[in-house]
Design a protein around this nucleic acid. Structure first.
Length: 828
RNA sequence: GCGGGCGUGGUGGAAUGGCUUACACGCCGGCUUUAGGUGCCGGUGCUCGAAAGAGCGUGGGGGUUCGAAUCCCCCCGCCCGCACCA
């Protein structure tokens, strides 16, 4: 073959990119009329240009979109930008540009790179979340939740960076430290807006059975995070107080072992208990001490637990025992009831606290194999056993103790069965500028007032001092914007100056794709229901417990208010593996980075896409070789050249060559084509991109061998290269389009139907029979596929090497798996 | 501590309980080339052997099976998530 002629990827890719950008050939219908596929990849946050992580997931996603179209589906493949967020504000503060300008410039870079990569998005549906036409529906969503009591304001401990004097989002707290200044984060008591995700906790857990296309790994992360536990709520009387206080426990059967009672330091009950006593000052000091601790210190399990005795007592309802009430930093305000019964013999934390403060330890569960002693034990016992020191329950085994005690508590009105969740309500307030304004005003007369729907959107003002260190939130500096008449009474009122967490935007953005220009509603349920649910969602697993829980929550809420029919937005989710170099995340500062733009310039988009897909299974992490972008030039780029030369060779062949018959070589090649279509199609369905590329490489290798051996049947070779191009088109859109046209087609390859294999051609007629003697392979024989068991045995016994290992003995057992295996057993 | 995942050639990785290592990188050789590179063809788990072939080999140990990378038990190592959740 002509080795001089090489594929000019730069010119070809530039030409088709221009054409595709100009014509938007992948626009989806408003409402699908046939089989649909709605494919979504997590929309990007526009900081800088695209990185390799984007390229990886986009390559996977776009391959699925193009493959689906060729399979005859009507595909909705949209894109947008998650355009609000703190990095824009940080960049603005650092460089003195407005966050809007910074954001739009980055979106332009992103978009150019996506176009360069050959993404087949429907660009007519694009939106940015920082536009009022989008975020007004965040405000709409907020009000819908607010009307139903699912958006509410309460005082809570938020992550607070003492240096930046701002509340941080969860995702901005990295290992207990502020991502901006590395200062350890502390909790600060603030009144904030929440979405009541906990109301949906059970459904979030139970509906996981619908998530058939999620990995167990991810579902486990969510289960863990939601953390449902079953137990009982028990009423404890407090001396000198009319109302009893509830505690939550998963081990009501250890109630008789409760030797003290603990309340979280922040608990209002703490104030009540010490009020009017000589402990008031001590409480203030204790709270200060606890509040001063960074999150890192407070949550460290090594740290010694700190406590304070309140001077008051609670009454254990099961035995009327008087037990002291303590405050301790290991009890959390926002889990359960914020108060616990402490059973030091059977809870490690309680035991550590009891030893530190000299509190009694009483064993109420005895293990079967040894005798516990409350005075000397150094480790709490949480295993199986029987109840002791527990009145009439003595002797009850732990297998039934929880149920029995709970039943008894309910019968005697002392408590009730209960469950609890680790999941907390979603704190959505942010003291940031670059986000959706919360549509609430505060009026001296009417209090908290919702902005009426017909006054939406509450537009984010451009002119604010977002660097102000004094203001509670940057929006507070826009005084003209803040001070408005109350929508209810018309008297002066002040707007809420916090903005919404940007995860609100991403919690429903995919719905907007189905109806992106709707000015009456976030989306029309008719259009949404026609496209939803998302047939395949793709994106990073780092969103496992943030975006992927919020989204499921909002989807269920939409279902409850009749906006959508599906309880789950994306039953199938593919998480790509992270890309590293030298085992570390790629970053400019480390210098271990490969820029997509460099790959585009040196090897082209097709080579980059193919390189990513060939590196391994899509969900597997990929450690990029240290040589960087050059590795593309060793792996995928040369192979694309090889494909090009093969196609060009075939295109140049005379139409009816003399003497090119249809011999065994041609038949073998045709059989390989059809077998390849068969297995490649199956691999596409299973995301086995790396293995299907290997199959395509085998096909190309065989074609080269055929040519090298003098084969010249143009018909067979044309069938081969056309099948090859069709199968390659979803992964490498440019070269396949170009070569398809050069082979004489007027229409785009990307609108063509997927090749169908001929079952007769794909069927094997000869296979390799493996002959084993006592489990070891002793020969391999080529046999027809329809060989009988008797014939298999006959041929196996005819093998000299098999005979040698039979050593003259008769097989006592023959296992035949026609036509591929026969296993003979002889006594040894 | 709790939960989950992983361990296969020099490397990335293949392998419905059935020939371990497809495909590719790297390396070795041949051809083409003034040369290098590119390209085309072939070889490449380890040990013994001239070869035929034999033995060993999927982190370690045991088990089930005619047959185990795959299923079961124990151990070792690595990675990830959550972490005072009562």
């Amino acid at each position: 073959m002509d080795r001089e002629r090489s594929y000019d990827f730069a010119a070809v890719e530039e030409r088709w990119k221009k054409e595709w950008v100009a014509t938007n050939p992948w626009a989806a219908p408003e409402i699908p009329t046939g089989n649909k596929r709605f494919l979504v990849t997590m929309f990007p946050y526009p900081s800088g240009d695209l990185h390799m992580g984007h390229v990886e997931i986009f390559s996977i996603h776009d391959t699925l979109a193009r493959y689906s179209r060729m399979q005859g589906f009507q595909v909705l493949n949209p894109i947008g930008w998650d355009a609000f967020g703190l990095p824009a504000e940080n960049a603005a503060i650092k460089r003195g540009v407005h966050p809007k300008k910074w954001t739009y410039e980055n979106i332009a870079k992103h978009r150019a790179s996506m176009e360069r990569l050959g993404m087949s998005f429907d660009w007519s549906r694009v939106f940015y979340t920082c536009e009022p036409t989008f975020y007004r529906w965040n405000q709409w969503l907020f009000l819908q939740l607010y009307e139903r009591g699912l958006a509410y304001r309460k005082a809570a401990a938020a992550n607070w960076c003492p240096k930046d004097k701002t509340v941080l989002a969860n995702e901005q707290v990295i290992a207990g430290r502020c991502e901006r200044c590395d200062t350890p984060v502390v909790k600060k008591w603030l009144t904030q807006w929440f979405f009541k995700t906990t109301d949906y906790a059970d459904r979030l857990l139970d509906d996981m059975e619908l998530l058939t296309g999620w990995t167990e790994r991810l579902k486990n992360l969510q289960r863990n995070w939601i953390g449902r536990s079953y137990g009982a709520e028990v009423n404890f009387k407090i001396e000198g107080r009319l109302e009893p206080v509830q505690v939550y426990t998963t081990r009501p059967d250890t109630l008789w072992g409760a030797t003290f009672f603990v309340v979280a330091p922040e608990h209002p009950l703490a104030d009540e208990l010490v009020s009017g006593t000589d402990k008031e000052d001590e409480l203030v000091r204790f709270r200060e001490e606890v509040g001063r601790l960074s999150e890192i210190d407070r949550t460290s399990t090594e740290r010694e637990k700190k406590g304070m005795f309140t001077g008051k007592y609670a009454i254990n309802p099961v035995n009327d025992e008087r037990i002291p009430i303590w405050l301790a930093d290991y009890v959390l305000m926002d889990y359960g009831t914020g108060a616990i019964m402490a059973v030091p013999a059977h809870d490690q934390r309680d035991l550590e606290f009891a030893r530190a403060y000299g509190l009694p330890v009483r064993v109420v569960i005895q293990p079967p194999d040894r005798e516990l002693d409350g005075d000397t034990m150094t480790e709490a016992y949480a295993g199986e056993g029987v109840m002791v020191n527990s009145g009439t329950f003595d002797g009850t085994p732990t297998t039934e103790s929880v149920a029995k005690v709970t039943e008894w508590l309910e019968a005697n009105n002392l408590g009730r069965s209960a469950k609890n969740f680790r999941l907390r309500d979603w704190l959505i307030s942010r003291q940031r500028y670059w986000g959706t304004p919360i549509p609430i005003v505060f009026c001296d007369d009417c209090g908290e007032v919702a902005i009426p729907y017909d006054q939406l959107p509450v537009v984010l003002p451009d002119d604010v001092d977002f660097e102000s260190q004094e203001a509670a939130s940057p929006l507070a500096t826009a005084t003209d914007w803040v001070n408005v008449p109350c929508p209810k009474c018309g008297r002066p009122s002040r707007r809420e100056t916090d903005t919404m967490d940007t995860f609100v935007d991403s919690s429903w953005y995919y719905q907007r794709y189905t109806d992106p220009r709707n000015e009456e509603a976030p989306f029309d349920p008719k259009k949404s229901n026609a496209w939803m649910p998302i047939d395949q969602y793709t994106g990073g697993i780092e969103h496992a417990v943030l975006h992927l829980i919020y989204t499921r929550f909002v989807q269920k809420f939409f279902m409850d208010i009749g906006m959508t029919k599906d309880p789950e937005p994306f039953p199938a989710l593919l998480n790509q593996g992270i890309i590293t170099m030298g085992g570390k995340r790629m970053s400019k500062s480390r210098g271990n980075i490969v820029e997509p733009v460099e790959a585009f310039e040196r090897y082209g988009a097709d080579a980059l896409r193919l390189y990513m897909l060939f590196s391994g299974p899509p969900e597997a992490p990929f450690d990029w070789p240290e040589e960087g972008v050059t590795s593309i030039g060793r792996v995928s780029a040369p192979w694309l050249q090889r494909v090009w030369r093969l196609c060009e060779d075939v295109a140049d062949m005379p139409v009816a060559p003399e003497g090119a018959g249809r011999g065994d070589a041609e038949i073998a090649l045709r059989k390989l084509i059809h077998r390849t279509i068969k297995v490649v199609t199956r691999d596409y369905e299973d995301f086995g991109f790396n293995t299907l590329i290997a199959r395509l490489q085998e096909l190309v290798n065989e074609a080269y061998r055929y040519r090298a051996a003098g084969g010249a049947n143009r018909g067979v070779l044309l069938e081969l290269v056309e099948s090859l191009l069709l199968m390659l088109a979803p992964m490498a859109p440019y070269i396949t389009e170009e070569e398809w046209r050069r082979l004489g087609h007027d229409e785009s390859i990307h609108g063509r139907e997927w090749p169908v294999f001929d079952p007769v051609m794909a069927a094997e007629d000869e296979v390799t029979l493996v002959v084993q003697v006592n489990g070891k392979v002793r020969d391999t024989i080529e046999v027809p596929v329809d060989i009988s068991e008797e014939e298999m045995l006959r041929r196996a016994l005819a093998s000299p090497n098999v005979q040698a290992h039979l050593a003259g003995k008769e097989p006592t057992k023959v296992i035949a798996r026609p036509p591929k295996l026969i296993s003979l057993v002889v006594p040894t």
